[in-house]
Design a protein around this nucleic acid. Structure first.
Length: 560
RNA sequence: UGGGGCGUCGACAAGCGGUAAGUCACCGGAUUUUGAUUCCGGCAUUCGGAGGUUCGAAUCCUCCCGCCCCAGCCA
C-alpha cells in the first residue's frame, strides 16, 4: 500500500465504494493498477495510479500492481522494468509482489474449458475478415457463425488442439456465445482466445494461444479478490461483458467503475502517438524531457510530490476534459519554490567590466539558499572586476517599462553592489559585446546608505570563477493546445519547432561545479532547473524544468 | 437510424430540492535585494436549450440540442 497519498478530495468513486461497504456488498477494498507493458507510463497513468492507490489507502485496503501482459507481440520486459521504476518513483508501494495476468493463463484456460462445457463458448473457424463481416454494423445486427453450434465435445477437442499448437495463427478462435444481435458490439460473441505463435516475455513458448483483454481482465481481478476495478471511460461498453463472464463462471465479482482519462493541453497522451514520437526520432526517447511520460517528467525535473498534488487537484469525474498545462506547472512551481535552492546562472552571458573595481581583487558575499526555508542557510559567492550579466538584462534603447540595465542606468547586483552602465563596447557589426560599468562601494551588500532606490536587481556571475555549462531550454512539445484535434492533418504538424534550445557556454556560480544528475535548483529570475544525467564531472548539463512566472515577459508580449 | 456515456465560469470541479464551494488562468492593487514568492481584491442573478412539477429546481419529470466512445483475432 501507499504512504504517498495526499488529502485527495472526495469523488464519485469514493462514494460508490462507501455505499458498497455500507451495504455489505464487499467487506474490504482491493483495487489494482493494471498497465500493459507495451510502453512507458505517462501523466495520464499517474492519475490512475494516484486514484487506485489513493482509494486503497483511504479505505484501508490494498492496491495491486498488475501487468496486463496478454499480448506477447507488443509487450516487453524493458517496459515492465520502467513501469515498476515509475510507480515506485511516484511514491507508491505495491507490497509483496507484482501481479501478472500471465500467471493466470492456466486458470484462464480452465475457465474457458468450463464455458465450453456449459455451452457458453465455441471454437470458430471463421477468418478475421469473416468474423468482422459477420459482426454486422453499429445499426445492423450481426449473423451467427456457421460454427456456432458445434457440439461441446468437438469444441473441447478443437480448443485443446489450439493449445497444443496444431493450428497456425488466425486459423481458429475461441468465442463466447452471447448474442449476435446485441446493440452492444462487445456482446456479439466476443473472441476469448486467439492463436499467437509468439514468445511471451515471461511464459516463453509455453503458450501459443492467448486470452483477449475481455477474458483476462475481469478474471484476473476476480483471482486477486479485487473489489473495485477502476478503469477509463472507453471500457464502459465492456462492463456488461465483464459482468457476463464473472456470472457465467460463478466467480468473485468485482465492480467495474469508469472515469474520464486525463487529457492535458499542448500534449498528446496516447501510447501510440508517444511511441511514434520516439520511433520517428521526434524526441530523444521515452524519457525526453519534453515527453509527458513519467520518466520524461522526472528527467525534466518534476517532483513526484508535484505530480501527486496535480492528480489530487484535477479531480475524478466522468466528463471528458482537458486540463490546462498551467495547472501542472503551478503545482510544480509551488513545490519547487519551497524546496529548490537558489543559485545564480547566466544563460546568455554579456561581459561586464567594473571600471572602478580594483583589478585582481575578489570578495565574497553570502547568498541566501532559499528565502522560503531559513534552515537552508547561505553560501559564499565570489565577486570580482569582470562579471557576466544576462544579455536580456541590458537594452541600449529600452522601452518605457524596461527597468533593468541601460546606458546611464543604475541597478543592483544581487547581494553585491549597485552598478551604473557608463559605456557600451560593440564589435564591427555593431553588436554589443561588453559593458563598462562603475560600482558604488557604499552600496556593498545591496543597499544604498543614502536611501536611493533602483528598479531592478540582477543576477550575475564572476567571470573568473564561473563554471561553464550546457543548459537545455525546454518548452511545450506542441504549439497547439489540442494537437489531437487541431483540424485536418497529423498531430505532428503541430510540433513546436522551438521546444528545445540548447545553450552552451552558460556561466554558473562556482558552487554548481559539483552538481549531480537529478539536483534541482532555481536559477534566480530564470526558472527551475535540474541537472541532467548527461552531466559529467565538472561539466554540468542542466535542463530547464519550468520558468518562473514572468510579468516582464508577459508585458513585453502584450506590447508586441 | 443501434448501444453506452457526458453537458455548472476561459480550464478543472464541488453541488445529491432550499436559493452557485474551491483551484488554475486572467485582471487590478500592496509588500519585495528574484518584474519570483507572499498578501489583498475582482472574476457564473446563473448551471446546454425549452417546457413542466414544486412555496422553492443546477438538483425531480418531459422533449430537444451538442459532444465523446464502440464495428481489433489491441488493451
Amino acid at each position: 500500500m501507499t504512504s504517498a497519498g495526499g488529502a485527495a478530495p472526495t469523488n464519485f468513486i469514493r462514494e460508490i465504494i462507501q455505499a458498497d461497504l455500507e451495504a455489505g456488498r464487499y467487506d474490504r477494498v482491493v483495487t489494482r493498477f493494471p498497465p500493459e507493458p507495451n510502453g512507458y507510463l505517462h501523466i495520464g497513468h499517474a492519475k490512475s495510479i494516484c486514484l487506485n492507490f489513493g482509494l486503497a489507502e483511504a479505505f484501508g485496503g490494498r492496491c495491486n500492481l498488475r501487468m496486463d501482459d496478454t499480448n506477447p507481440s507488443k509487450e516487453d520486459a524493458e517496459y515492465e522494468r520502467a513501469i515498476r521504476e515509475d510507480v515506485r518513483w511516484l511514491g507508491f508501494d505495491w507490497g509483496e509482489q507484482v501481479y501478472y495476468a500471465s500467471d493466470y493463463f492456466e486458470q484462464l484456460y480452465a475457465w474457458a474449458v468450463q464455458l465450453i462445457r456449459d455451452g457458453k463458448a465455441y471454437v470458430d473457424d471463421l477468418s478475421a475478415d469473416e468474423i468482422r463481416a459477420y459482426r454486422g454494423t453499429l445499426t445492423e445486427p450481426g449473423r451467427e457463425s456457421p460454427y456456432r453450434d458445434r457440439p461441446v465435445a468437438e469444441n473441447l477437442e478443437l480448443f485443446e488442439r489450439m493449445r497444443s499448437g496444431e493450428f497456425p495463427d488466425g486459423a481458429k478462435v475461441l468465442r463466447a456465445r452471447i448474442d449476435m444481435a446485441s446493440g452492444n458490439l462487445n456482446l456479439r460473441d466476443p473472441v476469448m482466445y486467439r492463436i499467437l505463435h509468439a514468445t511471451h516475455h515471461r511464459t516463453g513458448d509455453r503458450w501459443c494461444i492467448y486470452p483477449m483483454y475481455d477474458f483476462a481482465h475481469g478474471q484476473s481481478d476476480a483471482i486477486e479478490g479485487v473489489t473495485h476495478s477502476v478503469c477509463t471511460l472507453e471500457f464502459e461498453d465492456h462492463r456488461p461483458l465483464y459482468d457476463w463472464f464473472c456470472k457465467a463462471l460463478g466467480i468473485h465479482h468485482p465492480r467495474q467503475i469508469e472515469f474520464a482519462r486525463l487529457n492535458l493541453s499542448y500534449t498528446v497522451m496516447s501510447k501510440r502517438k508517444l511511441l511514434q514520437l520516439v520511433e520517428e526520432g521526434r524526441v530523444a526517447g521515452w524519457d525526453d524531457p519534453r515527453m509527458p511520460t513519467i520518466s520524461g517528467l522526472r528527467r525534466r525535473g518534476y517532483t513526484p510530490e508535484a505530480i501527486r498534488e496535480f492528480c489530487a487537484r484535477i479531480g475524478v469525474a466522468k466528463k471528458d476534459s482537458t486540463v490546462d498545462l498551467a495547472l501542472l506547472e503551478h503545482c510544480l512551481r509551488e513545490d519547487l519554490n519551497r524546496r529548490a535552492p537558489r543559485r545564480m546562472a547566466v544563460l546568455r552571458p554579456l561581459k561586464v567590466v567594473i571600471e572602478n573595481y580594483p583589478e585582481g581583487q575578489t570578495e565574497t558575499f553570502d547568498a541566501v539558499n532559499n528565502p522560503e526555508d531559513p534552515s537552508a542557510g547561505t553560501r559564499p559567492v565570489p565577486f570580482s572586476r569582470e562579471l557576466y550579466l544576462e544579455r536580456d538584462d541590458f537594452m541600449e534603447d529600452p522601452p518605457k517599462k524596461f527597468f533593468r540595465l541601460a546606458p546611464g542606468r543604475e541597478v543592483r547586483l544581487r547581494y553585491a553592489y549597485f552598478i551604473r552602465c557608463v559605456g557600451v563596447v560593440k564589435d564591427a557589426d555593431g553588436r554589443v559585446v561588453e559593458l563598462r560599468c562603475t560600482y558604488d562601494p557604499a552600496t556593498r551588500g545591496g543597499d544604498a546608505p543614502d536611501g536611493r532606490k533602483v528598479k531592478a536587481t540582477l543576477h550575475w556571475v564572476s567571470a573568473a570563477h564561473a563554471v561553464e555549462a550546457e543548459v537545455r531550454l525546454y518548452d511545450r512539445l506542441f504549439s497547439h493546445p489540442n494537437p489531437d484535434r487541431a483540424g485536418e492533418g497529423s498531430f505532428l504538424d503541430h510540433l513546436n519547432p522551438d521546444s528545445l534550445e540548447v545553450l552552451r557556454g552558460c556561466r554558473l556560480e562556482p558552487c554548481l561545479a559539483g552538481a549531480r544528475a537529478g539536483d534541482r535548483v532555481q536559477f534566480e529570475r530564470l526558472g527551475y532547473f535540474c541537472a541532467d544525467p548527461d552531466t559529467a564531472d565538472g561539466r554540468p548539463v542542466f535542463n530547464r524544468t519550468v520558468t518562473l512566472r514572468d510579468a516582464w515577459a508577459k508585458l513585453r508580449k502584450k506590447g508586441g
